[in-house]
């Protein structure tokens, strides 16, 4: 594994988080900013507003053009302005960020989105984007356009259905914050099996362990008493990778229902990393997948690697 080209480049990570309003999105934005700063990643903040019926598109466009004449900002930009202010408050030490002023006139409309132009030459690694339409569709488009590595989502109980759709359809890795406590020292729990996503999960695990100094555990669960060569091989490769990076790792091999075992083992003091499901998407939709079921049953923060 160590000889292969890494699947993630820690020097050019791009994270994306979606905000809806000051009322509901503060915790997600806060965690997104914190995580991006820990990984020294650039952070995209997207606000997805409702799209007006195309029937009245002319009327809405005409009104928006006229609102520009009155210096009234495009609806939704005020949420991005709030997000920028929050990011400044969260990083008071970032003097360059503090200097950046939100200017609603400095926007660029392209590819069905409105991007706020921020002075990148000053070292700003924040992207503020306004989109209109259905959330999952717009986040997919944003991730595909900007090649984000990771989408950070809240995962509150009443939005579980939305979280399922995001897990199923977003083309990047997804971090579901759930009840993540930034002050808590978690143990990393890496779920290892013979799926294709395990290698990338291991790389993410190593990166997080290095950045946060959290202890690492790998867990391999078999439904039967016998652990096949694929499972054993994947666990060995994971350990070898961590060893090569000088990270200590504890290995666990348990038997039972995979999801129930993950959930019971994780409790609330682990940060779970698992690969995205490789099941047929229709089966995932109808019967769920391990990540979706784990998300349903666990309160632990989960990183689903794709």
């Amino acid at each position: 594994m160590t000889k292969k080209k890494p699947l993630i480049d820690p020097k050019s990570l791009k994270f994306l988080t979606a905000v809806s309003s000051a009322e509901y999105s503060k915790p997600t934005l806060k965690m997104g900013a914190l995580i991006a700063s820990v990984f020294d990643a650039s952070l995209g903040v997207v606000y997805v507003g409702e799209r007006a019926s195309e029937f009245h598109g002319s009327a809405v466009n005409l009104t928006r053009t006229n609102l520009d004449n009155w210096n009234i900002i495009h609806p939704g930009l005020e949420v991005l302005e709030w997000a920028l202010d929050e990011l400044k408050k969260l990083s008071p030490e970032n003097k360059e960020l503090a200097k950046i002023q939100f200017n609603p006139d400095h926007v660029y409309e392209e590819d069905g989105r409105v991007r706020v132009i921020l002075p990148e030459e000053k070292g700003c690694r924040i992207e503020l984007v306004l989109r209109e339409g259905e959330l999952v569709d717009q986040m997919r488009k944003e991730i595909q356009l900007e090649s984000y590595d990771l989408a950070i989502i809240g995962g509150s109980q009443n939005k579980r259905h939305l979280a399922h759709s995001l897990i199923q359809y977003l083309p990047s890795s997804i971090f579901v914050l759930q009840k993540l406590n930034p002050r808590k020292k978690y143990k990393l729990l890496l779920l290892v099996d013979d799926s294709a996503a395990t290698r990338k999960s291991v790389e993410w695990g190593a990166l997080i362990a290095e950045k946060l100094g959290w202890p690492v555990r790998t867990l391999t669960v078999s439904k039967t008493i016998r652990f096949g060569a694929g499972y054993q091989g994947a666990a060995d490769k994971a350990k070898a990778y961590f060893d090569s990076r000088g990270i200590e790792v504890e290995q666990f091999f348990l038997t039972g229902d995979p999801v129930r075992t993950f959930v019971e083992f994780a409790g609330d003091n682990h940060f779970v990393i698992m690969g995205a499901s490789t099941l047929n998407p229709i089966k995932q939709l109808l019967f769920g997948s391990k990540p979706i079921k784990t998300l349903e049953q666990s309160d632990a923060p989960i990183l689903i690697v794709r």
Partner: peptide, 14 residues
């Protein structure tokens, strides 16, 4: 908000 253009416009103000 969909029936009349005026309703759509005020709705799109957020």
């Amino acid at each position: 908000a969909v029936a009349a253009p005026a309703c759509t416009i005020i709705y799109s103000s957020g």
